[in-house]
Amino acid sequence: MIYSAADIPVWMAVVVAFFVLAGAALALIGAIGFLRLPTFYERIHAPTLATSWGTGGIMCASILFFSVAGGRLVAHEVLIGVFITVTTPVTFMLLARAALHRDRFENNPKVPRRTGPVKL
């Protein structure tokens, strides 16, 4: 099914445009930070910009556009939003633990030691 952009009112187009641009701008800022920040532990903060409100903005825009153009509530983008919000922290936690493990294995002095006895 194809929805035409001409079917929606101008103020709604402005709202959709705002959300799309805000989401894309956050994703771009996240990518720039990902390139510029110096260490790995600082870099993992940058892509969460794209996965939190970067995704949120574009999903809001998509929901608004298809709901208004189709004349009925189309909210399946919520699924992508929820999915990304729940899964990205899992990935980053696993990666951060892997990075900590590797840095500790190499005795990198910038990484905090394990608290308590080491489990073998």
Partner: peptide
């Protein structure tokens, strides 16, 4: 809690230690 902390840009949950129930965070 870990999803909240990691999902928020600027803080990341690195490691939870269940023996002394403390968590290691990294803050930007």
């Amino acid at each position: 809690l870990s999803i909240i902390v990691t999902g928020t840009p600027g803080s990341a949950w690195l490691e939870y230690d269940s023996r002394n129930s403390s968590v290691l965070l990294h803050v930007l």
